[in-house]
Structures are given as structure tokens and as C-alpha cells.
């Protein structure tokens, strides 16, 4: 069932986002692993397009939040207000109460608002005026940001980046994809006609099914070996956390499901590792973008256990 859900999502998303099958696969892997997704890139490469394509394919409720410096936490979580006719206080849910939440330009929001968002992502619940409200299931946050823009932004700190299952860099489209865009194939036009391929309940079941994809002990060892290598790498000042290892395994399980395997292969781990790990390590040089290269280097070194 999970494999079918994954295949349908993939077909739908790639109809809108042309020429980026690997990125689409990673985005869906983040979704199926039950994690959240951060898309980083310059404007105009289709960040919002991908997020919307996913949101529309999933069905369920979709909310979009534009990150601005005057955005307050209460604008996201909701407020308790007095209802005159009912003569009682009532909770008015904010835009976070949706199955898919798109937070555009999250680094433009203030750290306080960012913290509230990330809190909700981790806890999957919101506390307002002492009362706890659970968020809907499944709950997926797709955040975008432009890391190259500095004026008026508040970059996410490491602990906050760790909350995202993986960070995706879309990159510029190929010439062919760009031509298709100009000719009106794909892109926002397609988005208008995109039909949901699944529903929140099915997706929630698919997510729990992905968690049960069998993992051979050699694969576990491989994941541990990779994490250990990030910690001992000379250029890295802070290696992957245990949460990062768990995330790597979960996303690999989801990736295996998407490519149609009933088990996790080392290839799955290898394929998702850069996206899962590069935003979670801190290099001694402080250079954020060199992290992907370091992960690639580690993957080229760590031996694959062959059982």
C-alpha cells in the first residue's frame, strides 16, 4: 500500500516539477518518513511549486504562511477569543492546524516565531493559554528559505535545522525543463489541475507502514558507521546526532518504498544521506555549503557491509 501511495505521489509531483526526479523523490521520502522538509535555494527555481504540488497531491488541509518580521507566534498557533453569542472563551486555531503547512521564507520570521513553529513541528501539538491542542495527522511542514539572502533575515540555528528530516537544494533546472516551463508544460499551470492522489488517513497509514520496512543488521551497521565517520572527520566540529542517525534510517526506509523495494538497500542510505546529514553537521570552517561535500567524501570512504 505504501509503495502505491509513494508511486502515485511521485507521478503527480513530477508532473508539476519537471526535470527533478531525484529531488521529488527526496521530498516524498521526507513526507513518508513522517518528517519535515526544508527547501533551500535562490528564488524562482520552483521551491513553492514543489511544496504546493506535494500539498495538493496529499489532499487534506493546506495552509500557507509567509515569513515576515512582524509575524507573531499567535498568528500561527491561534488565539483564544471570547464569543459573545456563546458567552464563552473559544480557541480559534491558527494556520498551523493543517495537514500540510507551507512556511515560505522561514528565515524572514523572527527567531521567536521560528521557535514556535519548530516547537509545533517537533511536538505535533500546540499549547495556547495553558491548553494543549493536537495538530492533525499527518502533519507535514515544508519550509523554504533563501540562504543567500542576508539582509533582514534570521538564519535558522543548528538545533532548529535538525528538526527537518532533510534539506533539499533544488538547483537550476536543465535546459529541457526550462524549455518545457516556457512552453507551459509543467509549472503553475499544471498545479491548477493537480488532483490529490491520496488522503490524510491513507498517508498516515503509509507512514506507519514505512516505519516497519525491514532493516538488515548490516544496514544498521552501515548507518552507524556513517554517523561515526561524521563525528571523527577532521573538518567537522560537530558530527551527526543520534537523532540524525534515526532520521537517516527512516528516510532510507521511505526511499526504499518509493523505489519499490520491500527492504532497505545500502543504496537507499547512500542516496538520502547528503540531504539528511549535511544540514546537521557543523564544519570547523563555519561554511554551511561545504557540508554536502564532506558527507559525499564520507560516503565514498565508509565501507558497505556486504553481509
Amino acid at each position: 500500500m505504501a509503495a502505491q501511495v509513494a508511486a502515485d505521489l511521485f507521478a503527480n509531483v513530477t508532473r508539476a516539477l519537471r526535470g527533478k526526479p531525484d529531488e521529488a523523490r527526496l521530498a516524498i521520502a521526507a513526507l513518508l518518513s513522517g518528517g519535515h522538509l526544508l527547501i533551500e535555494d535562490v528564488p524562482g527555481v520552483g521551491k513553492t511549486l514543489l511544496a504546493k504540488a506535494i500539498a495538493q497531491s496529499v489532499g487534506g488541509t493546506f495552509r500557507r504562511i509567509q515569513g515576515t518580521p512582524d509575524l507573531l507566534p499567535a498568528d500561527l498557533t491561534g488565539i483564544t477569543m471570547y464569543r459573545r453569542e456563546a458567552e464563552s472563551w473559544e480557541f480559534q486555531p491558527g494556520p498551523l492546524f493543517a495537514n500540510v503547512v507551507l512556511v515560505d521564507e522561514i528565515n524572514r520570521a523572527t527567531p521567536r516565531t521560528q521557535a514556535a513553529t519548530l516547537e509545533a513541528m517537533e511536538e505535533r501539538q500546540v499549547t495556547v493559554d495553558g491548553r494543549t491542542h493536537p495538530l492533525p495527522k499527518p502533519f507535514l511542514v515544508i519550509a523554504t528559505q533563501n540562504p543567500f539572502e542576508h539582509a533582514g533575515t534570521f538564519p535558522l540555528v543548528e538545533g532548529q535545522r535538525d528538526r527537518f528530516s532533510l534539506v533539499l537544494e533544488l538547483g537550476l533546472p536543465g535546459r529541457q525543463s526550462e524549455r518545457e516551463l516556457l512552453l507551459g508544460q509543467g509549472g503553475t499551470d499544471v498545479l491548477r489541475h493537480l488532483k490529490p492522489t491520496t488522503d490524510p488517513t491513507t498517508l498516515a497509514n503509509a507512514i506507519s507502514e514505512v516505519h516497519r520496512v525491514p532493516v538488515h543488521e548490516a544496514i544498521t551497521e552501515y548507518v552507524l558507521d556513517i554517523s561515526a565517520a561524521t563525528r571523527s572527520h577532521p573538518a567537522v566540529s560537530l558530527g551527526a546526532s543520534p537523532r540524525a542517525s534515526l532520521s537517516l534510517l527512516r528516510v532510507a526506509q521511505a526511499h526504499a518504498t518509493i523505489v519499490g523495494r520491500s527492504f532497505v538497500a545500502p543504496d537507499d542510505v547512500k542516496r538520502v544521506a547528503p540531504a539528511v546529514l549535511s544540514h546537521r553537521i557543523i564544519l570547523s570552517s563555519g561554511d554551511l555549503r561545504a557540508a554536502t561535500a564532506v558527507i559525499e567524501e564520507i560516503l565514498a570512504k565508509v565501507a558497505v557491509p556486504t553481509g
Partner: peptide
Amino acid sequence: ITASAYGSV
């Protein structure tokens, strides 16, 4: 080989 080695298939 992959299926046999890692998938217990």
C-alpha cells in the same frame, strides 16, 4: 544480490 543480502528475500 542486494535483495538476497539485505532483504532476506
